[in-house]
């Protein structure tokens, strides 16, 4: 074994388990959220940047809040506020919408999401 071989092993061996963990495990923690209004794409938010923003829909402004890797409807101009009561989203594939205001949030992450659809 030459010095070059030893250096190659030293470089690759520690990386292998990390590569396996990053690409092969279901990445359930979401990293980003796509915002749509009436089916039209508006913007992509990073869940790593805490923020509050207004998204204008059919009835008025929905208030979205991002905090510590999660996102939620903080308020919305609908009457029943089911979107607000649904609480925080944080997993890849999570989805919530204010139906009357036609504003929706879809969470994305790296790799594959664990479930194709959520039943509730």
């Amino acid at each position: 074994m030459t010095l070059a071989d030893r250096l190659l092993y030293l470089l690759i061996l520690p990386i292998l388990p990390l590569v396996f963990w990053f690409f092969w495990q279901p990445a359930t923690q979401a990293l980003q959220a796509d915002i749509h209004v009436n089916g039209q794409y508006q913007q992509r938010l990073s869940l790593q940047d805490n923020q509050t923003l207004r998204v204008h829909g059919d009835l008025g402004d929905s208030i979205l809040e991002v905090q510590d890797g999660k996102i939620r409807f903080k308020d919305s101009p609908c009457t029943i506020k089911r979107c607000v009561h649904s609480g925080w989203l944080k997993h890849t594939g999570d989805f919530n919408a204010c139906v009357p205001n036609k504003v929706s949030i879809a969470l994305l992450g790296s790799g594959t999401q664990k479930f194709d659809s959520i039943n509730f």
Partner: peptide
Amino acid sequence: FLILFITSFISACTPKEQEYRDSLF
């Protein structure tokens, strides 16, 4: 080792382009 290292990237790819999603209100 080199083959294992390289294929661990390739085999993690899934054909997402075959999936079509849409949401209707």
